[in-house]
């Protein structure tokens, strides 16, 4: 069980993109790569319209599909609760991307230590390194409206409940998005509307097939065939068994 959580309160987001830029700074991302994506939701008709900006990044599942399908064991759980990629182990096979129930794991061109371009899984780390040193993730520390807050797991859950009660009048459908099906997440969202409005599934789950792959097929296969061959086979399995197809990226 990790110790920290982040709450993204979409009812307080003004869409200023400061978190995106602060995140790019922290993680050395080029201008066209971002761990954070945005989608706008407009509900109602002029002039009775509500506008909500949804800032979306990796949820850091307690029971993470990406961790299970990775043939290289490049994805792991940090003691902070973050789900992190070891880019040196990653081979860019895209299983994580194809199987993430939220479309958040992405394989992109990154630079290795020698400065060569290589395909690597690239996603929010919940600023794991900073957090381990007792600091706050870059996005949360630059957010002046406190739409992003970070803290001890239980305190954040409490804060979310408290905020939910406060916004219910204005947003009757408001809810906390912390899907049980993936064991709960370390980035949770206070959504103003039903998850479907943000292209999120209410009942996102870890597919059973992923568990089987991780826990049985992969260790055995690796032993017999070696990692590279398994990667090829794994690709076929994972695509067939639990590829959701093209993810619709909200707002992108």
């Amino acid at each position: 069980m990790g110790q920290y959580r982040m709450l993204v309160d979409v009812t307080k987001c003004i869409g200023c993109y400061s978190c995106r830029v602060a995140c790019q700074m922290e993680n050395d991302l080029p201008p066209d790569q971002s761990y954070i994506s945005f989608c706008e939701v407009e509900k109602g008709e002029y002039p009775n319209v509500e506008w909500v900006m949804h800032r979306f990044s990796c949820l850091h599942c307690e029971d993470a599909v990406c961790e299970k399908v990775c043939p290289q064991n490049a994805i792991s759980y940090s003691q902070t609760g973050a789900v992190v990629v070891d880019q040196e182990q990653c081979i860019g096979c895209e299983y994580c991307e194809k199987n993430c129930p939220f479309g958040r794991a992405k394989v992109e061109l990154c630079q290795d230590k020698e400065g060569n371009s290589v395909s690597r899984a690239n996603k929010c780390t919940l600023c794991n390194g900073k957090v381990l040193e007792g600091m706050t993730p870059a996005c949360a520390s630059t957010c002046y409206t406190e739409a992003i807050v970070f803290g001890e797991s239980d305190e954040i859950l409490q804060k979310a409940e408290q905020r939910l009660a406060e916004v219910k009048d204005r947003y009757p459908d408001a809810n906390i998005y912390n899907p049980e099906g993936v064991g709960g997440t370390h980035t949770i969202y206070l959504l103003a509307h039903k998850p479907e409005e943000y292209d999120l599934e209410s009942d996102a789950t870890t597919p059973a097939s992923a568990i089987i792959w991780k826990d049985y097929a992969q260790p055995l296969g690796k032993l017999l065939l070696g990692a590279t061959t398994m990667a090829v086979i794994g690709g076929a399995i994972s695509n067939r068994l639990f590829n959701k197809g093209e993810h619709h990226e909200g707002g992108e």
């Binding site: 400061s18 830029v21 602060a22 630059t142 002046y144």
Partner: peptide, 8 residues
């Protein structure tokens, strides 16, 4: 704190 422009 800094805004996006401040960083960018």
């Amino acid at each position: 704190t800094l805004c996006a422009r401040g960083h960018g």
